[in-house]
């Protein structure tokens, strides 16, 4: 489905080069949820921008469904953290969801059905004619999720989508995302800085090192597919994973790297 091979990204500027990502290699199989966590400044957003084709890697390749990614590929949707800035303020909620479908060349009746269904799926069936700025932050992010769902992507990338909403809304939105993922059968790549969130949502958690980024560990989440906020979070396995990943992220913050050589050069 998704193959990332030897991805490296160096930002070049007059004041010197910054190596954001050193070497990332991983796969995501079709229908999987992979969460990516790491300390702040670990190049998580850079990674997602490279995968989405918004940013060209310095070296290495991203392959999606057998095709090399050189620009934003078809069959992919991205939900950004800044919901207020990713919705078109001059379009209504329904028009925001419909715009990419129009561009895909879908018939009007199909578009209307997809818009209606996806808005209902995120619990916003009653506000299609509102404008995004008339809604609360959590509702705006729901619109962005509805837009992504209506687009019927094969892979959905989410870049810290709930970092700017309050804790209760966040829990609701996490359940919404799990629900959509199960229903649509899509591959989901979810970037977050929240360890609990990554375990709650993910089947796998990729823990990243500090900059320049490599993968510290690919942690399998051995929790049942049916999850809910209370039982899953109280599961002993959940606690074990949290301790383990927390420990990894702490060590990442202190500059721990798996390859000794890199650790020495970083000191």
């Amino acid at each position: 489905m998704l193959e990332v091979r030897g991805l490296r990204k160096v930002y070049r500027s007059a004041s010197g080069d910054t190596e954001a990502i050193r070497d990332l290699t991983f796969d995501a199989t079709a229908g999987e949820i992979v969460c990516i966590v790491g300390p702040s400044g670990a190049g998580k957003t850079t990674l997602l921008r490279c995968i989405s084709g918004l940013l060209a890697p310095t070296s290495g390749t991203v392959t999606l469904e057998g095709h090399d990614v050189s620009g934003p590929p078809g069959g992919m949707a991205v939900v950004f953290q800044e919901y207020a800035r990713s919705l078109f303020p001059w379009l209504t909620v329904a028009q925001n969801v419909e715009l990419p479908l129009k561009e895909k060349g879908l018939k009007k009746s199909d578009r209307a059905r997809l818009v209606q269904d996806s808005l209902e799926a995120v619990g916003l069936g009653d506000v299609p004619d509102s404008y995004p700025w008339q809604l609360s932050g959590g509702m705006q992010q729901r619109v962005a999720i509805a837009r992504a769902a209506a687009y019927e992507p094969h892979i959905l990338l989410m870049d810290e989508p709930f970092a700017a909403v309050d804790a209760q809304t966040r829990a609701d939105l996490e359940d919404l995302v799990r629900d959509l993922w199960q229903r649509l059968g899509i591959t989901l790549l979810f970037v977050t800085h929240d360890i609990d969130e990554s375990i709650y949502l993910g089947q796998r958690v990729l823990v990243l090192s500090a900059r320049p980024t490599v993968i510290l560990e690919d942690v399998a989440v051995d929790l049942p597919d049916e999850r809910d906020q209370l039982t899953t979070r109280n599961d002993p396995e959940f606690g074990r994973l949290r301790t383990h990943i927390y420990d990894l992220v702490q060590r990442a913050k202190q500059g721990y790297r798996p390859d000794e050589e890199a650790a020495e050069s970083a000191v």
């Binding site: 084709g53 949707a77 950004f80 800035r85 990419p100 561009e103």
Partner: peptide
């Protein structure tokens, strides 16, 4: 807005659509 530009690009909006619904608006 940069994020809005990125959004338009990831949904592969065509040049004309981007001009009309993103840039000019």
């Amino acid at each position: 807005d940069e994020v809005l530009r990125d959004t338009a690009r990831t949904y592969r909006l065509g040049r004309l659509t981007q001009l009309r619904t993103l840039v000019l608006r």
